[in-house]
Design a protein around this nucleic acid. Structure first.
Lengths: 186, 186
DNA sequence: GCAATAATACTCGGATAGAGTCTGTCCGAGTGTCTGGGG
DNA sequence: CCCCAGACACTCGGACAGACTCTATCCGAGTATTATTGC
């Protein structure tokens, strides 16, 4: 069970867009240069945010992305669901209704009666996942931004000015990111 | 973010093994026939449970898997971690330390000072995931079994007898083996 | 009849292919800006 | 000097490959059972 890396990118971008402010738009390439990310792929994630109604996009020069609503009204869960999708991580495939178990318990004979009530396992997983979502829904982009700014106030100010500075590349070009394939789960 | 399907299989198998009882071992093929699952692949999941110390395995005839400890001491989280691994779903890649953000905030100059403290985003994700784990750790295999049994007591009894019945295939509906017909002593 | 031995079948365990999803890249459509010319 | 038209550069948006993980399968190592043989 691995969360897409784009979630982290999207959250950081939302925080940055909330710093810039609503009338100003920031292109995806500028945000990508901030964190040394592949620009086209980051653009893809921002598109997902746009489809979810979290950001709005404008094409052409001086275009880019901006938050569609105040940062106080965008929860972390909104961003996560925009990138990862709304389907829960655990999906009950109802294996107790198949095979000999289904025959012995008589569940295969009543296809739509028992399926309304989830099995005990699915119920436990659902409760846990609901708690997870509740925690994420309790934190907004504004909260995250506030915590980040009281940790390094000077740096965020510099980042803001760098982002809003017009021109192609304020500090010069960077190298392309080359991640050395991380693997292993334990 | 998708949880492996093997988690559901493993949980059901743990519940069934707790029904059978400790001295009795159930082979993976029998459990697979219960739910109409690919036997070799289910065996793979049970191996992961064995590596995690949740079940013990015995080879040879009358062999199979059994629970390594009472069902009351096996939490749902134990099974999930055995299958999915222990790494959290969200992994902070510290993108604020790279690219222009790292330069502007001065984080790239202090590589190991700031990384001890997680960023606000990673912190929020970690809290949510901790809540998720706490919920899963609060439910044991015994709990799940109890809920399942009070919903269909008759079916579980049939399943238990089917699982513990010796012989290749209790229902006799499947292929016939070429085992030399058991000759009684007379 | 009893014990030792060899054959057998059953089970797990790890090594080996295929499918699906995540990651990364490319090029085209659309739009605002800038330049040049004319009134 | 002001207005207009054209070209341009910039941006998003979706379509197109590569990598990795999950899913599924096969065959070998080991063991308890069973049949056989000798005493």
């Amino acid at each position: 069970m691995r969360m897409s890396e784009g979630v982290e990118w999207a959250l950081h971008c939302c925080v940055d867009l909330s710093r810039v402010g609503s009338p100003q738009a920031v292109p995806a390439a500028r945000l990508a240069a901030l964190y040394d990310l592949p620009p086209a792929y980051l653009n893809k994630q921002l598109q997902a945010l746009g489809r979810a109604g979290i950001v709005t996009s404008t094409a052409g020069p001086r275009g880019g992305f901006r938050l569609a609503r105040p940062a106080e009204e965008i929860t972390v869960l909104d961003v996560v669901m925009a990138i990862e999708g709304t389907t829960p991580a655990f999906r009950c495939t109802d294996i107790t209704h198949r095979g000999h178990a289904g025959v012995l318990t008589g569940r295969s004979a009543r296809p739509d009666v028992d399926r309304r009530v989830p099995c005990a396992i699915a119920q436990a997983m659902r409760f846990a996942e609901l708690a997870w979502r509740r925690h994420l829904a309790a934190r907004t982009v504004a909260d995250v931004r506030m915590v980040a700014e009281e940790r390094s106030p000077a740096g965020t100010k510099l980042m803001l000015s760098w982002m809003t500075t017009p021109g192609p590349e304020p500090t010069g070009a960077t190298r392309a990111r080359k991640t050395p394939t991380r693997k292993g789960k334990s």
